[in-house]
């Protein structure tokens, strides 16, 4: 068993440098430690200026996504022992602008989330006095998978389409739109479809499928997008064949 392991951590101090560099840190090796524990060790004992985001340390807040040896990972769920004997290369999430060290800029992502109208849209609200909307476990199961997204942005870091074109709405936001479309309580599918069938929407996706593989929560954004494409295509055919029909 080894005693220590080396981390090569990307550093970017915009007030001093124009591009990122790597810094090597040697940390104790502990089989119970995840990459995030090692980063915390560095910040507490070796270099207090290392900057990164983290919070829950239980894979649900979505803060600590980083590239670990070239793969996007939640660092709180990535054990050091997987990378023995090292070194382990830790970088900020790919395809996002780097603000500092391991922290990326995410306002673009936040805007995209909002752009898909991720809330229940109803023609008519049901008064609270009439109780809940009934929803069977099967109806719940229809969208449940897409509601599990923790917004960690790992799917964006896995998606070359987003890397090449930042206008692409991207996997998480499209899956979120699908989450509401598939919810039996929602009536906003048409409203969302116009927005999402634009070029930057579903048709931007070339089905690389890496988002689904990288997702730590099994959300399957690639599946959501393909299902959406199928729906958009059928809608288009319908309106083409029966222009007098809907809308």
């Amino acid at each position: 068993m080894i005693d220590t392991i080396t981390l090569e951590v990307a550093r970017y101090r915009p007030e001093q440098e124009t591009e990122p560099t790597f810094e090597r840190f040697e940390v104790p090796f502990n089989k119970d430690w995840v990459v995030l524990d090692a980063l915390n060790y560095i910040k507490d004992r070796l270099d207090g200026s290392l900057s990164y985001r983290w919070s829950c340390r239980m894979g649900v807040c979505g803060s600590c996504g980083m590239m670990v040896n070239g793969e996007p990972k939640l660092t709180c769920a990535t054990f050091l022992s997987k990378y023995v004997p090292g070194p382990i290369r830790v970088e900020p999430l790919r395809y996002f602008p780097v603000v500092r060290d391991l922290a990326v800029e995410m306002t673009d992502f936040m805007d995209k989330l909002k752009s898909v109208k991720p809330w229940i849209i109803r023609q008519e609200e049901r008064p609270l006095s009439e109780g809940e909307y009934l929803q069977t476990p099967v109806q719940l199961d229809n969208y449940k998978q897409f509601s599990m997204c923790i917004n960690c942005m790992i799917c964006y870091a896995a998606c070359p389409v987003y890397g090449l074109d930042h206008h692409f709405i991207g996997p998480a936001a499209l899956a979120l739109a699908q989450r509401y479309n598939m919810d039996s309580r929602d009536q906003g599918t048409d409203e969302r479809l116009d927005l999402l069938s634009q070029h930057e929407g579903i048709w931007g996706c070339t089905f690389v499928g890496e988002c689904t593989k990288a997702c730590p929560k099994n959300v399957d954004p690639a599946g959501a997008i393909q299902q959406y494409k199928l729906k958009a295509a059928t809608e288009w055919f319908k309106s083409f064949l029966m222009p007098w029909g809907r809308k």
Binding site: L128, E132, Y133, Q135, T136, P137, L140, D183, R185
Partner: peptide, 22 residues
């Protein structure tokens, strides 16, 4: 109860009985 129902109306995916109730 009213607050919880409101959250249901906003889309919270509460677990359900087979008949669709909370």
């Amino acid at each position: 109860p009213e607050e919880m129902l409101r959250l249901e109306h906003w889309g919270c995916p509460w677990s359900r009985e087979p008949d669709g109730h909370i």
